[in-house]
Structures are given as C-alpha cells and as structure tokens.
Design a protein around this nucleic acid. Sequence first.
DNA 1: GTCTATAATAAGATAGAC
DNA 2: GTCTATCTTATTATAGAC
Lengths: 225, 225
Amino acid sequence: MTMTSERSAVPAELIAEPRKSRKNNPEKTRENILQEAIVEFVQQGLSGARVDAIAERIHTSKRMIYYYFGSKEQLYVEVLEKLYGDIRNTENRLHLTELGPVEAICRLVEFTFDHHDHNVDFVRIVSIENIHNAEYVKRSDAIKAMNNTILDALGEILRRGAEEGLFRAGLVALDVHLLISSFCFYRVSNRHTFGEIFQIDLPDEAIKQRHRAMICESVLRYLQA
Amino acid sequence: MTMTSERSAVPAELIAEPRKSRKNNPEKTRENILQEAIVEFVQQGLSGARVDAIAERIHTSKRMIYYYFGSKEQLYVEVLEKLYGDIRNTENRLHLTELGPVEAICRLVEFTFDHHDHNVDFVRIVSIENIHNAEYVKRSDAIKAMNNTILDALGEILRRGAEEGLFRAGLVALDVHLLISSFCFYRVSNRHTFGEIFQIDLPDEAIKQRHRAMICESVLRYLQA
DNA sequence: GTCTATAATAAGATAGAC
DNA sequence: GTCTATCTTATTATAGAC
C-alpha cells in the first residue's frame, strides 16, 4: 500500500499502477477470494475445502489467501459472516406492521420459505456449521452483533392477532419461528436424502408451490383460536 | 508379545488362542472398527474423519481397517448403512392400525420426535450425507432395499381418518411426513446454530416436552376437517 | 501486492514379517 | 489376522524475489 517517493507532475491515480503483471487491485482481489471461498466451502465443507482449489479458481495465487486472510479457518469465518449478513439484511425489509395478523403471518412464512429456497448456500453453510457444533458462529462477534428482527416482528404479529381474537393467547414467538424455519430449512437442506429415499423431486416447481401453501396453512391453523 | 510354543496338557479352548498378542477375534475386530468409525464420521464428517483417529481408538491398528473395509469411503458407506438400518428396524415396531386416527397420528409424531431426539448420530450422518448431495446413499443398494413402511402406515391412517370424517380428504402422506420430519429433524440437526442465535437450549427437558406436544398438535390441526 | 518455489507435515494406502 | 514400518501424495502454510 505504501507508494512513497512520488515526485513528478503526473496525476497520482495514473502513476499508482505502473508496476506488475495483469492488474493490481487489492479490494477486488480480496473480494474475489471471498467469493470463490464461498463456493468452495459451501460445496465441500470446512475440512473438505481446499485452499488450492480456491486459488485455482481465481487469477490470483494461493499466496494471496494467506496474505489477506491469514488462515483457512479465518477465511471460513469470513464466509460464514458474509452469508449470515446477507440474510439479516433482507429480513429487515419486511413491512409487516401494515398488514392484518393473518396476512402478516402469510407473508412472513412465504418470505421465509422463498428465502431458504433462494439461498441454498446459506442453508448449506448453516448445516456445515452444525456439524461443527456451531463452533465458529459462537466465535464470531460479528454474527452475535446481528440482531434478530424476525422474532420481534413475529411476536408483534402474534400479540395483535391475540388482541383481535384471531389467534390463541400464550403462543411463544420462538416456538412458532422454529415451526416455520424447520420446514423451510429442511426441504432445502435434506432434499437429497429425502428425495432419494422417497423418490420425490423437492425442487420441482409444482411441488414447491404446494409445499409453500402447505406450510402457510399449517402455521395459520396452529395459531388460530 | 508373542507367547508361542505352548506344549502342555491344557484344554483345547484355552490352547486355541496361543498365537499372537492380546487376542485374535476377527468378527469382534471388524465390529469394533465399525463402531468407532461411527463415532469418528459422525463427529468429523467424511472429509474431517481420519483413518488414523479411528485406528487409535481401538486396540487394532490402522492396517486392519484396510484389511476389512478396503478404503475410507467404503467404511463410510458401511457406517451409513448401519445407521440407516437401525432406524428402519425400529420404524417397523409401531402398531398403529389398532388405534383411532387421531391417536395413531399422535403416536406416530411422538415416535418420530423421540426417535430423532435419541438418535443424534443418525441425524448427523444424514446431514453429512446431504452436504455430499446424498452421493453415497444413492450408491448404496442396501439402503435402497430398505423399504419405508412409514409412508404406508401414514397413508393408511389418513385414509381411515378421512373415512371417519375426522380428517380432510386429499391429504398427501408424503407431505404430512415432510411436515413431521422437518420439525423433528431440525430441532436436533440445527440445535447448535439455532440455540446460539436465539439463545435457547433446545435439548432442555422442559422445552423438549413443549415442542413434542407442539408438533403433535400442529400436525393434528393441519389434518383436521 | 503479487508471483514462484518450497518447507513441513499430515493422511490415505500398502509392503512384508510373523 | 495382526503388527510395524513406509510409500506417495496432498495440503496447509511460509520464504523471498520482484
């Protein structure tokens, strides 16, 4: 980074990159590594992932990975933080307070469903983390700092629903969230074994829509007074 | 270590093992390897597991693993088959036809719940398999040959329930099974990340009982006419 | 900041004696 | 059938030039 001893009358931006091979782009390089690391870790798991394999995918050499991230484990942690971060950012974009309780639940469930359906990478990295007993999630302050708006939002809907006599009283938001998450997560995380054992193609569009409606109805029936 | 050359008047059973070190017991050795392989693969995953680590746990040396199983992958497949086999054997011991539809569903759900709760090893190996896209499950004829009595049993209950006007018509057994399985599986498979993110101890006995009742009620409400 | 080369070690698999 | 020793390859990580 230290580009000392500039003395000429040339714009600094132009003289800054005269040195080496193809291109020098620190931020891009780091970003590229992280991007390909996601692919590798998500596909191969933590122990299955190969630092070489990540390096091979990029223009950059393996040396850069250690230059920017220090170790394979640290790179994995950053992959974890990136994927968790993406998720949390989208969760905040739900506007549920404007809707009636039933519609709000529907939207929340469908959002959760679509969300897991679209983010297989996230589902896989969470599965991988659980194989490691969430050791790295526990270690990451960044992930701890991401607060869960989803439970608050759900709690608020349940409260309103109970007030209006639509839902039962005494429902625990966390339990309801567990009910929703488990279905949305499992049909993605376990689609390979479940699909093989029961000979069903879970990602099939028609089946997907059926299951999307199903979990919505199921949750509503559970909540209803 | 070799205590050869016993020549005296000793009973045959005692003289039968005069050769080598501690003991020679082929079947026991193979069984021991498989038992410890389960522990290692379940804890570390396929790529994380070390053949050395398995060998270290047993009296036997690493050589024996290759002698009996040929390769690490083959050993993994046998672990997979063993854990899947154990599951299927217990599934057949449910007697649901004697019960009314509602009670039968309750028992089936509670059985599935307890089953996953008690067999963390199975849950973990299935998670691991899904990370590998169920590649080894697909490869195993033994697992393919294990037929799923559970879907038939569930279908039968749904049919009876609909006949008696207790359940809705047109319910798909596989969908209901997905609903049940996802909850029972997820609360075990994802207990580490879910517990950390939401600060809850899923294995806690009181919480467990609450969730056990919850999934039962939830499924029943979904089925009811 | 990026490259090539390489150290250090770990891991799957095998040889060969007993 | 079991043991010790070892081959071979892969893998994380680092050195050092440019």
